[in-house]
Amino acid sequence: MSVSDQLAAGEPEGVSSGAVSIAQASKLLRVPMPTLRSWELRYGIPESDRVSGKHRRYTAAEMHALRLMRDEIARGTRASLAARSVRALLGVEGPAGELIQSVLAASDRSDPKGIRNELSRAADLLGTGPAVDEVLLPAMRQIGQWWQTGRCDVDQEHLTTEAARSWLDKRMAFAPPPVMSNPLILACGPGDLHTIGLEALALLMRENGWPCRVLGARTSTDSLVTSARAAAAAGVVVVAHLPTGRRRALASIAAVHDLRIPVFYAGNAFSTPRSRAQLPGVYLGTRLQDAAALLADHLRS
């Protein structure tokens, strides 16, 4: 069974065996039929080898791909970027794919120790950076999708999140002492709640010798400015995912820039070139390993 088939298993929204028509898929997903056709024709979501002229029917794995696409777009992601994200998630195979499945299985068992053990195994096999980008974050995205579609409840989502954060905290505690003097400040935008990506980036930077201070969720502009000034920060990272919080995140970025402290930013709120036009600072992209390397290069220059 492929990774995408395994991820689709157990979904209550859709079909567990057989296939459904496009009209049924539209009703189940609450997505218009023309939109489903557009996703397949323009973006290849879902991938299909059907024969031209035959009536379109969607398998369980294809329904899962459509759910992922729908939910990415619902979070404000552009369709082209949402399709790229879906293909990346469904295309994970080999050791990383197997490790994702192990993390998800431990989550289904409500086994926080098992989640931490699988993440440690991923770091041992792949290294910390790949374990974060290729196992931790895809697994957490999948848990988020499960919660949104009713595949898991909020208790399972919270348990998995806290287990992942605990694993990051432990790795941070055992990281080598920082060799740089001025800290890097990392904060969510004033409207953003999710901190796992921020904490994971802090771990990668700490392993590169940088002291890091994570201010966490919903950091106000005033709190960010006060912390950056008091710490004589080497740089500040602002992460914002929600389009509704973008304006306040922009105010934070501008305020740090006015302090003449290097400012960096990331997240879905800045995923398009247009959303980054005329912004001060440096966009860090979508992969944390690349973001850590870019940060280190800029801060050392």
Rank of each mutant, 00 (worst) to 15 (best):
M1K: 15
M1F: 09
A8Y: 10
G10C: 02
G18K: 01
A19M: 12
S21I: 06
Q24K: 12
S26Y: 03
R30M: 13
P34I: 09
E40R: 06
G44P: 04
R56C: 06
R57F: 10
A61M: 09
R67V: 02
D71V: 02
A82H: 05
E98L: 05
L104P: 05
D111C: 11
P112C: 02
P112F: 00
K113E: 14
N117F: 06
E118T: 13
S120Y: 07
D124M: 10
G127I: 02
T128V: 15
G129H: 07
A131E: 01
A131V: 02
V132P: 11
A139W: 03
I143L: 11
T149S: 14
D153F: 01
W167G: 00
W167D: 00
L168H: 07
F174T: 15
F174K: 15
P176R: 14
G197L: 04
L203E: 03
L204Q: 11
G209M: 00
T219W: 07
T226P: 10
S227K: 03
R229F: 08
G235A: 04
V236N: 05
V239N: 13
L242H: 15
P243T: 02
P243F: 00
T244P: 01
I253P: 03
V256I: 13
F270T: 09
T272N: 03
P273S: 12
G281D: 00
V282Q: 13
R287Q: 08
A291C: 04
L295P: 05
A296W: 02
